[in-house]
Design a protein around this nucleic acid. Structure first.
Lengths: 156, 156
DNA sequence: CAGAGACTGAGACTCAGTATCAATTAGAGG
DNA sequence: CCTCTAATTGATACTGAGTCTCAGTCTCTG
């Protein structure tokens, strides 16, 4: 965490930005909480801690953290974006349980390679991607309304 | 198109729903326009045609069309969802050009198979998935700010 | 063809996220 | 350590996609 805050400062400096108290508070809270946090969660947590940070500032800081490559932003269709530490962690994609909301990370380098195949095929220059599989996790399987279709079908 | 409207009616009936004029108008317009349309586009188009349909009804009808498996819903991060005909078309995923907004469809059965591997590995019951690659299309490549990184990195 | 229940739509509402702008603060240069 | 300026903050107003409400309307079954 210490290391990451240092990196945050470095990256800010590199862009001519200042390391202010609110920015530090947001970054620290995100790092110390881990997992997938939404902007509003962050605002509430900081308020509870007695170190409130304005809404606008939280959103602005999250944008900086994302742009600097320190955090990834994900939209699991719950109506708000969530943030997850990216720096120093291997790339991965997600399974999302539509019953309990659990987020499961997976790595599958073979899929990544096939993606490269696809982009090459279309002469497309990939910058980032989003690969999410929605369904029922191990624990919630029993509640699945129907057996899984041969292949996934709805997109979100 | 005739066939699809018939299917729409069938699926409505199957759920105890009525085929009303507004629902027919929405489905017809979506089918005749093709491509990826947002709710608001639809509302504008219908108004221009002199057959306006209320906002609430358009949204409600889109939900029905999606649930019935006739249309797929996608979120390319532009702040609104877009709808695309699903019935009678093969499953595919998308490349999205962050410069011109172009949507390119791709099929890669090998990725689908690897997805099945992944879900099996986690004892996860997949219901649907979302796989999008963002970047610069063939035409917009020149405008790419930087060469593509070794592997895609930011998620949305 | 009449009745019941489904459906519609104008408009109020929600809620994540953005814009504004006067007051505050980081931190470079002295 | 102080000063000065540009960057930053945050209360608040705003935006815009999507949802809710409910009185009036329509579908379609019997």
């Amino acid at each position: 965490m210490r290391v990451d805050l240092g990196t945050f400062q470095e990256r800010l400096r590199g862009r001519g930005l200042k390391l202010t108290r609110p920015r530090r508070l947001v970054a620290e809270k995100l790092l110390s909480t881990g997992g997938h946090l939404a902007a509003d969660d962050l605002i509430q947590l900081l308020r509870r801690d007695g170190t409130p940070v304005g809404r606008a500032t939280v959103y602005r800081t999250l944008a900086i953290l994302r742009t600097a490559g320190l955090f990834d932003e994900h939209d699991f269709g719950s109506g708000h974006k969530v943030y997850e530490r990216a720096l120093g962690r291997p790339h991965h994609d997600h399974l999302f349980c539509i019953s309990c909301g659990a987020v499961i990370e997976f790595r599958e380098p073979r899929i990544e390679r096939l993606q490269d195949d696809v982009t090459r095929r279309y002469r497309f220059t990939a910058m980032y991607h989003s690969h999410k599989i929605f369904g029922y996790c191990r624990r919630c399987r029993g509640q699945a309304r129907a057996p899984a279709p041969a292949r996934t079908e709805r997109h979100a």
